[in-house]
Design a protein around this nucleic acid. Structure first.
Lengths: 334, 334
DNA sequence: TTGAAAGCGCTAACAT
DNA sequence: ATGTTAGCGCTTTCAA
């Protein structure tokens, strides 16, 4: 049998397909009741693909993130998803595994199937995202930008400011030997947090030996290894900063594996809240920021852009971070 | 300008649209080079919507889960996503917030836009999922089924067995007063784990007073409150079992808030691993099971079903659980 | 108010 | 090997 088409309904109701179409769009029609009945009897549902071909819009948006498993992106996706509830939009979710190459593939696959894109690019340096500009597809950058992303909407957070908060907190506690585990410097948050943190150190006349500064990849394992390296130093740091949630977990694991007391021997502060933060041993102090809201805002910007086109100037929303003091930081032991 | 169409390419290459189409599908054509050049110059990309309308398949699958934020489902989604990499499929992700009503909406929205569905239904009792049967759309049930889901593929885990393992472990430790916080009994894992746990207790001649048995909703807060109730009992349990990861967190929070030593005063075991399990205070003992694999398997079943139709009998895959002993369980204090 | 007809972009017969 | 034609299901002129 397959799905009933509008022609089937029209035939059954004794009208033309055009009339059925009009009725469905809400226009006044004489045979309204007959049509409604035919629709019910045939369990007719308009074919969205045909509709899209005709109308040129798919009522779908693409969401491209580096890692759905990361609780931060999971929360963002939930926010995006919930912001579609009062609309007809569906969400195409794609994972890039932090790979610019996969991102290229995924973006190509999405082209033509969506009315807009929410993109957290794997790197700032890739060019394909701005290639999209030519396509005229509305894009909102999420949490991360790309170089020459001017002209696009974005929802970011104050990475520099947040990292500065973290550094100042550690410095205020009296730490001078601070280990930092940054994310990839070719990502917005990686670079921003690195810069902010180093600036705050410099402002306090602190210059770190190069081996105190490690670059991870925003994933757990890189940070675990970086932490091992830091702690194996002849003069190990008295405090460590990790630039995102997954790396925080990596550091905590290293600390745990080496049986290092926190904050007794080493203080620790992370960027991004850990959902179980206060249940951890010890409860971990972090720089937090809105997550679900970031997704909601991104979707709002995107819908606005899709529905009203490009007349408005690009909007850049920057959200604030805040420090959640729990129990993983203390003054250094003398 | 908009996107170039196949006609534009054809005109530019001096051939017909059909020839361009053939070339793109890999057939031998004389003007191959001219066509390739035209494609490049115009940055032509075939319109997937038009293709879908013609071919009847969308190369998209719908994935409907109760909560993306739940690390279990996040992992499953990652598995599904990764299993699409070597194919042309994209993933429509939808969240139902554990609501059968939202699920109905979401499913309706997905109809006609996807070639198949991976569904973790909000409840076993809703009928709309099997209404889908009439549509002939391939469906794989994930982690949860619905009543009368015979005839559909599914990827489940041994909920009864896993819960039994947990109960037997606690009993073996010497516990007799055991509090259980089950999930909704109208979901497959909720009912299965409840049944398995109670069976194991019965097999050990343990009959629990009714107030020891609480029913939560698989979310953190319900379990936190249930735990408070259990622990406020005149004779509180010496051990608690929670039926999923989020509820485990709820219980841990309650325990933490009441300053109850674990496992000193109360032992705790959860179903589903907590990613930070061993970093928690105390490290928590859990029943674990494959997650990403569950997603990968679901996608494989679905692709198989989409590509080969219904000739094969429905496949039901049931994966095993296993106990991870960490530090949250001990013998009860006398 | 309604039907006929054209067309969205692509592909598959069919004819050459 | 290639072009012509028709049609996927729907919407939207244009006439009536």
């Amino acid at each position: 049998m397959g799905q009933a088409t509008i022609t089937d309904v029209a035939r059954r109701a004794g009208v033309s397909a055009a009339t059925v179409s009009r009725h469905l769009r809400g226009q006044r029609v004489l045979e309204a009741v007959a049509i409604t009945r035919a629709v019910d009897e045939l369990a007719y549902v308009p074919n969205p693909v045909a509709r899209s071909l005709k109308s040129g819009s798919t009522f779908a948006v693409g969401v491209v993130v580096p890692d759905v498993t990361n609780p931060f992106f999971a929360a963002v996706v939930k926010g995006i998803e919930s912001a579609t509830h009062d609309s007809r939009y569906s969400v195409f979710l794609c994972n890039t595994d932090e790979s610019a190459e996969r991102e290229r593939l995924v973006l190509a696959q999405l082209m033509g199937r969506v009315d807009g894109l929410i993109l957290a690019p794997a790197t700032e340096t890739a060019e394909h995202p701005t290639d999209l500009r030519r396509s005229g597809l509305p894009i909102v950058f999420l949490d991360r930008e790309v170089h020459s992303a001017e002209g696009f909407d974005s929802v970011l957070i104050d990475n520099e400011g947040g990292a500065r908060q973290a550094a100042e907190y550690l410095i205020g506690l009296g730490h001078r030997r601070i280990g930092v585990i940054s994310g990839p410097l070719n990502t917005t948050p990686g670079r921003g947090r690195h810069t902010g943190f180093m600036q705050a150190l410099a402002a306090a006349d602190l210059e770190l030996p190069p081996e105190y500064v490690q670059i991870g990849d925003f994933r757990e394992d890189s940070a675990r290894q970086a932490a091992f390296r830091l702690l194996a130093l002849p003069e190990p740091p008295t405090a460590i900063f990790a630039a995102n949630n997954l790396m925080s977990i990596g550091v905590m694991r290293a600390l745990h594996a080496m049986d290092i007391r926190v904050p007794g021997q080493v203080s620790f502060i992370g960027f991004d809240d850990l959902h179980l933060g206060e249940l951890l041993n010890p409860p971990v102090t972090v720089i937090d920021r809105p997550t679900v809201e970031q997704g909601v805002l991104a979707m709002r910007l995107l819908r606005n852009r899709i529905e009203h086109g490009s007349p408005q100037p690009p909007r850049q929303i920057v959200l604030d971070t805040h420090l959640i003091i729990r129990g993983s930081c203390a003054a250094p032991v003398p």
